[in-house]
Computed example of a mutant assay.
Amino acid sequence: MTALTVRTLGEDDWQIYRDVRLSALEESPEAFAASSSAEKQLDESAWRRRMARARRILATDENGDKVGVVSLRSDVRDDEESPYGELFGLWVTPDARGTGVAVALLEAVLEQARKESLGAVIYWVGTDNARGVAFASSRGFLPTEHRRPMNPNSSDTESEEEAAFVYPLGADETSIPSDVLDARH
């Protein structure tokens, strides 16, 4: 593995996030519910709102090249004993895949989740994404029976599904409200 720097982006880093996000959408369009053409239309205020809704964690290599990104959104409800987080948007550049970038990003997400005293982290993975399923399982995420359409906005009635994996941080799957696991945010 090459030397990596992993850091959480701030709201003023919206352009960095935008550029990496657009690269991800262009390189791996099948992995995301969004499209690069739609997201290219977003203005600065929309990107800043996105930055405020979730932590965006960026990995760069020793040359300063952006090699991966992931997001963590917390969902804290007043009636919950144990709030949870959702890991999403994990992407690693093709050249950096298999080098430990995804593991470093995941570890940063889990560290952030612990700092926020989250009880669990949910990670939705495409059921046909063998590499993603193996990665989640090998890193301690527990599979659940919860499924949802990968792209709920698609007119394709045979849309691919994604499955919820849960990483317990003091909570288990039963402490996460079922409406969270059954609905798309």
Rank of each mutant, 00 (worst) to 15 (best):
V133R: 13
V133C: 11
V133E: 05
V133L: 13
V133Y: 12
A134C: 09
A134K: 12
A134S: 14
A134E: 12
F135S: 05
F135P: 05
F135W: 07
F135H: 08
F135Y: 04
F135N: 06
F135T: 04
F135K: 04
A136Q: 02
A136T: 09
A136C: 06
A136K: 01
A136V: 10
A136R: 05
S137H: 06
S137Y: 04
S137I: 10
S138Q: 04
S138R: 15
S138V: 01
S138L: 07
S138A: 12
S138Y: 08
R139W: 07
R139P: 00
R139T: 13
R139G: 07
R139D: 05
G140P: 01
G140R: 08
G140S: 02
G140A: 02
G140V: 01
G140L: 04
F141A: 11
F141Q: 11
F141R: 12
F141V: 03
F141D: 09
L142G: 09
L142T: 02
L142K: 12
L142F: 04
L142N: 10
L142I: 05
P143F: 01
P143T: 02
P143M: 02
P143A: 03
P143G: 04
P143H: 01
P143L: 03
T144Q: 00
T144S: 03
T144Y: 01
T144F: 11
T144M: 01
T144V: 02
T144C: 06
E145I: 00
E145M: 11
E145H: 12
E145K: 12
E145P: 04
H146Q: 08
H146D: 11
H146G: 02
H146R: 13
H146S: 08
H146F: 15
R147N: 01
R147V: 00
R147M: 13
R147G: 11
R148N: 05
R148Y: 03
R148E: 05
R148T: 10
R148K: 04
P149W: 14
M150S: 15
M150A: 15
N151R: 15
N151A: 15
N151G: 14
P152D: 08
P152Q: 09
P152G: 02
P152Y: 04
P152S: 03
N153Q: 09
N153K: 11
N153A: 10
S154W: 00
S154H: 01
S154M: 03
S154G: 06
S155P: 06
S155M: 08
S155K: 03
S155G: 05
D156E: 12
D156A: 03
D156G: 03
D156H: 10
D156I: 00
D156N: 13
D156F: 14
T157I: 00
E158P: 00
E158G: 15
E158K: 11
E158S: 11
E158Y: 09
S159N: 15
S159C: 09
S159T: 09
S159V: 07
S159Q: 14
S159F: 04
E160M: 14
E160D: 13
E160R: 15
E161I: 01
E161C: 07
E161H: 13
E161K: 10
E161M: 14
E162L: 13
E162P: 06
E162D: 14
E162C: 11
A163I: 06
A163Y: 00
A163S: 15
A163C: 13
A163E: 09
A163F: 01
A164L: 12
A164T: 10
A164D: 00
A164I: 10
A164N: 03
A164M: 05
A164G: 02
F165R: 01
F165C: 09
